[in-house]
Computed example of a mutant assay.
Amino acid sequence: MVKLVLLHKADSIYEDEPDVVYDFPRAYLKAVREAEGDWIVYYEPVKAGARGYFAVAKIQRIIPKPGVEGRYLALIEPGSYLPFDAEVPRLVEGRPLEASLTEPDGSPKKGGAVQLAVRRLPEADFARIVDLGLPQDLERREATRYNPVPDDLAEQNTPFQRPILERLTRRPYRDVAFRRKVREAYDYRCAMSGLQLRNGGGRPEVQAAHIRPVERQGSDAIRNGLALSGTLHWMFDRGLISVAEDCETILVSRNKVPGDVVARLLRPDGKLWKPSDRKNWPSPANLKWHRENVFGQVVTDEPISWG
């Protein structure tokens, strides 16, 4: 097995969905087959200023693309995709992070390997890129973000140096990474109430909800998340509310949720408040899954008090 860098362009002819599938031509089949069962890093160049490396994922298996001669699909292992907390530039202090893109004097190569959509990635390069995108101390950073640890306690909070792959598969770490990215994408505003509430210490009250739960083949992609207040998160997970086929109209289980509660909790226009960056809008496929598998179908013994 071998690790890879996979080039992704949102406006390309290839129908990628980074947390689900990577679409590629036959020319790269040998290299991608070598990475079957291993981790990859996604990279996206942007003309206005390179987005750079933006996520990791694991290739589960490769299949021919149905109905398209000469194209293949790398299926992403469910639950493996994780966006970087901070996107990583291709160059750091003028030097590429990939050895294959570096001249002997440390300067960046031009053309050739730089243009490849699939590049083999040595373990050391993979570790360096992941460390920059998903820092070891991410959990501590989040825990102390609005309540800094006093200097005399800082030494006690030195993070345990976990191996890269252990960090990528630990649920607590992934939950923190997911929460940070989803709340940031929604500007710390609840997608259904439109409110941007913070407590006295400046801590955002909004939570990050998975549209399709990880344990039911959902991912930690921003597009599988909604920023919601605690109450609306609870209602969403229990199928009392959802989002319509137009991906913006909020659906309410009217026989279970009183009208005055709807008026108090939801935006007056009944529409979803979405991120400013379109690439972070909720996935239509995941919203459809929630409508068909959760909305109006979750049975709970918990008493509902709308007082």
Rank of each mutant, 00 (worst) to 15 (best):
G230A: 14
M235H: 07
K181M: 15
R264Q: 10
M192C: 12
C190F: 09
R189I: 04
P163G: 11
V206I: 11
R254E: 15
G194H: 05
S253F: 13
M235Q: 10
S276N: 14
G270Y: 13
Q161F: 09
L168F: 08
A263M: 04
I241D: 06
A209S: 10
R278F: 11
L266C: 06
R183N: 11
G270M: 15
Q207N: 14
G201H: 06
E205A: 14
R254S: 15
A208S: 03
S242W: 06
M235K: 06
F160R: 07
E184M: 07
S193E: 06
L168P: 05
L195Y: 09
V262R: 03
A221V: 00
L251Y: 10
R278S: 08
R264F: 03
V214T: 05
D175I: 01
R180A: 14
A209M: 07
A263V: 10
L265M: 13
G201Y: 14
I250T: 06
R183M: 12
P268K: 13
M192Q: 03
L195D: 11
L226C: 13
D187F: 13
V206Y: 09
S193N: 10
R264E: 11
F236L: 02
K271V: 14
G194I: 09
P258Y: 04
D269T: 04
T231M: 09
R171I: 10
S193K: 11
W273A: 15
R183S: 06
R167G: 09
Y173G: 10
L165G: 02
R183G: 02
R223C: 12
E245R: 11
D277C: 05
G202P: 02
Q217K: 02
P172W: 09
C247R: 07
P258R: 00
A244P: 01
A244S: 14
D220F: 11
P258D: 06
Y186E: 08
Y186D: 02
D269H: 02
D277I: 13
R254T: 15
P204N: 00
E184K: 15
R162K: 11
L226G: 02
G259I: 00
I222Q: 07
L228R: 00
L168C: 04
L168A: 08
R171Y: 11
E205Y: 08
P213M: 00
N199S: 05
P268M: 07
R264D: 11
S193A: 09
T249H: 07
R174E: 08
R254W: 12
V243H: 03
R216A: 09
Y173K: 00
V262Q: 06
V214C: 00
F236D: 02
S276F: 15
L232M: 10
